[in-house]
Amino acid sequence: MHKEAAPADWTPKGQAAKGASLARATVVNQRVSRLASRSYVSGYHTETRETAVASSGPGYEGCEGTYCAEGNVVHALGGDWTKVRSGVAYVQEKIQGTDPAMYQPAVTPVCLECKLDYPLSNFVPGITSEPDGPWSEP
């Protein structure tokens, strides 16, 4: 998990872009095999302006259970899901024909569980989602 404050010239679009860049870099640089299959997402807090990147898996420090990356971002940014906007989620994808193996980020859709937990308005424009669930493909 990574969290940082926003710059003085903060904008929602700018924080979303910065968060996406951090999430992609985290995916590409993840070399621990037990973490390689996780999804990574960024989000920003609409009031504090902080940005966080988290992976799916065991909850954010101090939380019980296992969460999707979106849930871990919410926990990292204070726990109030109504004030967090999640970005595009990424997984690690091996670049074919590379030896040693090299990886690139690949977009992964918002899962059904997150679609049940959060309204579409809690996601930045441009996300993709699984076809089932309470809101249709954006």
Rank of each mutant, 00 (worst) to 15 (best):
V53F: 03
V88K: 14
S33E: 14
P125F: 01
A6K: 09
I127C: 03
L77G: 04
G126M: 02
V84K: 08
V91M: 14
A5R: 14
Y103K: 11
G59H: 05
A16H: 06
Y67W: 13
P58F: 01
D9T: 10
T82A: 11
G62D: 06
F123G: 02
Y103H: 13
A76S: 13
V88Y: 08
D132E: 14
E113C: 07
H2F: 15
G87Q: 07
E70A: 06
E64V: 11
S55K: 05
T26K: 14
R24E: 13
V74Y: 04
L120V: 10
E50C: 03
A36D: 08
T11G: 08
G62A: 05
T26G: 08
I127F: 12
W81E: 09
E93M: 11
T66V: 15
A6F: 03
T48V: 03
E93R: 15
V110Y: 09
Q92A: 11
S55V: 00
L35P: 00
S121M: 02
S55L: 06
T66M: 08
Q92F: 05
V41L: 11
Y60H: 12
C63Q: 15
E50F: 09
K18Y: 12
S33T: 14
G43W: 00
V28L: 05
A8G: 12
V53H: 01
V73N: 04
E64K: 15
C111A: 04
C68L: 01
Y90L: 05
D132L: 12
H45N: 08
P125H: 02
W135T: 00
T66L: 05
Q15R: 14
P105R: 00
C63R: 13
L35F: 13
I95C: 05
Y44Q: 02
P58D: 10
S136A: 13
N72W: 04
T46N: 01
V84A: 03
P12A: 08
D99C: 09
A23C: 04
G65V: 05
V53Y: 02
W10T: 02
G97F: 10
N72L: 01
S21M: 06
Y90N: 02
D132R: 14
E137L: 09
G65R: 00
R85C: 07
S55Y: 03
R38F: 04
T108F: 07
E4H: 12
L112D: 07
V84Q: 02
V53L: 05
C114M: 11
C111F: 07
C68G: 12
T11F: 07
N29S: 15
Y40K: 06
G126Q: 06
Q96H: 10
A16F: 07
D99E: 15
V28M: 09
G65L: 02
R24F: 00
Y90K: 04
E61T: 13
M102A: 11
G133A: 07
Y60E: 07
D99I: 04
K13L: 12
K115P: 01
R34V: 13
T66C: 06
G57Q: 08
Y44I: 01
K94S: 08
Y103F: 15
Y103L: 05
G133L: 03
T128S: 14
E50Q: 12
P125C: 01
D132Y: 11
K83S: 03
E137P: 10
V53N: 01
A106M: 14
E113T: 10
